[in-house]
């Protein structure tokens, strides 16, 4: 193992993950986080994975995808079908892996033709693909059609969920701070210049898209094994917009803000649970207002970093 992995900032991140894990576990055991709050907590974690993975595609690579729900749908159904046959941790893992493979293949098929398109055309094409995925799921036997799957064993546990969040954050952050990540950023900034600098732009767009799809399918698997029931109407265009709202609220390109936005919206959803119409109106208005007054999102592209924090203390 390279010694750089054991630097102070990585240890600080590891430490904070352990603290969050222990504190939440204790609070759950003590009943302070009751089953009602627990649903919110679990939802927030799933949404963090979705928001971070979509942010990779939109915020880092600059490719505007409106089809994220489609990949979540694939992950959810793969996990749901396998765990119904094998209701244990092994089954979950197999379902998860099958979901990875299928969503990666579908993402490849979707991305190679559509990623040639620019901006808003791409958005509509990905939306179309996600809807096709949903319609296919709705018409298959193994997925039990429009009725969906019920009685999925509840295998999503707190450690598993937190592991999912940590893994997706590590994957996306490590990717961003590397040569392939820089290639993606340069595509976002100026595609023609990027290609002139020797970057195979299609290749890196596809890579970002596939990583995003795999992480979304992980979120889908955790989702399916948490809520017992899944059906195609849970994975419509509206779900993609929900994820988009989190990415846009926080700030495109910043993972810190996606995490915060997912948490804030999770809490907001809980508070406004009985006013679902008003909630949607607020979301709509918020999208408009943010785009007009602060299009970079509430936090912009700023990232929280232990490295900067530690360096600042050293300077003092």
């Amino acid at each position: 193992m390279p010694k750089q992995l054991l630097c102070k900032e990585n240890l600080a991140w590891l430490g904070s993950a352990i603290v969050i894990f222990v504190v939440c576990s204790l609070l759950m055991n003590a009943g302070i986080i009751n089953s009602y709050y627990q649903i919110t907590l679990y939802n927030i974690c799933i949404n963090i994975i979705l928001a971070v993975s979509l942010n990779l595609v939109i915020g880092i690579c600059g490719q505007f995808s409106l089809g994220h729900a489609g990949f979540m749908c694939i992950g959810a159904y793969c996990a749901g079908i396998v765990t119904k046959m094998m209701p244990n941790f092994g089954g979950f893992m197999i379902g998860l892996l099958i979901g990875f493979v299928i969503s990666a293949i579908v993402a490849l098929i979707v991305s190679i033709p559509t990623l040639r398109l620019k901006g808003d055309y791409l958005a509509i094409a990905t939306l179309g693909f996600a809807e096709i995925i949903r319609i296919v799921v709705q018409n298959m036997e193994i997925t039990n059609g429009a009725a969906g799957l019920s009685g999925i064993p509840r295998l999503t546990t707190w450690p598993l969920l937190l592991a999912g969040v940590v893994i997706s954050l590590i994957v996306v952050c490590n990717f961003t701070r590397s040569a392939p990540g820089r290639a993606c950023l340069s595509i976002r900034e100026d595609e023609i210049a990027s290609e002139a600098m020797g970057i195979n732009t299609t290749r890196y767009k596809v890579i970002a898209f596939v990583i995003g799809a795999i992480l979304a399918s992980m979120a889908g698997a955790l989702f399916a094994c948490n809520f017992y029931v899944i059906n195609p109407t849970q994975f419509t265009f509206n779900r993609s917009i929900d994820i988009l709202v989190m990415v846009v609220f926080g700030g495109m390109g910043s993972m810190t803000s996606s995490v915060i936005a997912a948490a804030a919206i999770g809490v907001l959803n809980m508070i406004l649970q009985n006013f679902s119409d008003i909630r949607m109106i607020i979301y709509g208005l918020a999208l408009v207002i943010i785009m007009i007054f602060k299009p970079s999102g509430l936090l912009g592209t700023r990232e929280f970093s232990f490295k900067k924090l530690l360096n600042r203390r050293k300077e003092k």
Partner: peptide, 19 residues
């Protein structure tokens, strides 16, 4: 650094797993 891309010899997986 972006322009040095073609001479960098590690791939996406090495980046993600920090090999």
């Amino acid at each position: 650094k972006v322009a040095m891309h073609k001479n960098i010899r590690y791939g996406t997986l090495a980046a993600i797993f920090r090999l």
